[in-house]
């Protein structure tokens, strides 16, 4: 059976099913991260003292990772724009760069985690590190999820371009929506954890 409304829009929603589905998923993600941001506020306000993020964490590494993630958002949107312009080679280049940038982010994060864990600053060290590892860990898992999906779309999933161009372009668009959301979460995590 053919999946309906993958290319054409549903008359009642004005959207393809995939796009509406991803937006509803992102709405649930807002609530997930919202609950953790709310916990952060509660922990910080209720704490007798709270360390300044820049004294505990590496601001230069986080700044580098912010630049990496913002750049990956641009390459992601350029991957979609390349398909819209019928340029498959450019799409492959841009999505490939997105994946590489995401992996760079994870490698930097790995070294950050390693540094803290070796120094005995794990999640059980204090409340600051507990919420730091929870928030960045969940965010890191989202990056990993994005890498897996984008790698599929870069590799075997890209075969769809040969037969259903518009449907594949829509897939890249909704994968991009997820990816930009992950970037957006980091835009808030960076100042909250590292700079305040």
């Amino acid at each position: 059976m053919e999946i309906p409304y993958t290319v054409e829009v549903r008359p009642d929603t004005g959207l393809s099913n995939g796009k509406l589905g991803v937006w509803l998923f992102l709405a649930s993600e807002v609530m997930l991260f919202g609950a953790l941001f709310s916990s952060y506020i509660l922990l910080r306000v209720g704490s007798a003292e709270w360390p300044h993020g820049s004294e505990e964490l590496s601001v230069p590494l986080a700044f580098f990772n912010t630049v990496v993630l913002i750049s990956s958002s641009v390459t992601m949107v350029m991957a979609w724009a390349s398909l819209k312009m019928n340029d498959f080679k450019k799409f492959r280049l841009n999505l490939g760069l997105t994946i590489l940038l995401a992996l760079t982010f994870l490698v930097v994060k790995f070294f950050e985690y390693e540094h803290h864990l070796v120094a005995g600053e794990g999640p059980s060290h204090n409340t600051f590190y507990a919420i730091y590892f929870t928030l960045t860990g969940l965010h890191g898992l989202h990056i990993l999820g994005g890498v897996i999906v984008n790698s599929y779309l870069w590799g075997p999933g890209a075969r769809m371009w040969q037969t259903q161009k518009e449907r594949f372009t829509n897939r890249i668009e909704i994968a991009g929506l997820y990816w930009h959301f992950v970037d957006l979460v980091w835009i808030f995590l960076f100042p909250i954890l590292y700079l305040l």
Binding site: G176, D183, L184
Partner: peptide
Amino acid sequence: SLVALFFM
């Protein structure tokens, strides 16, 4: 907002 308005 810039990410949401333009990239998304």
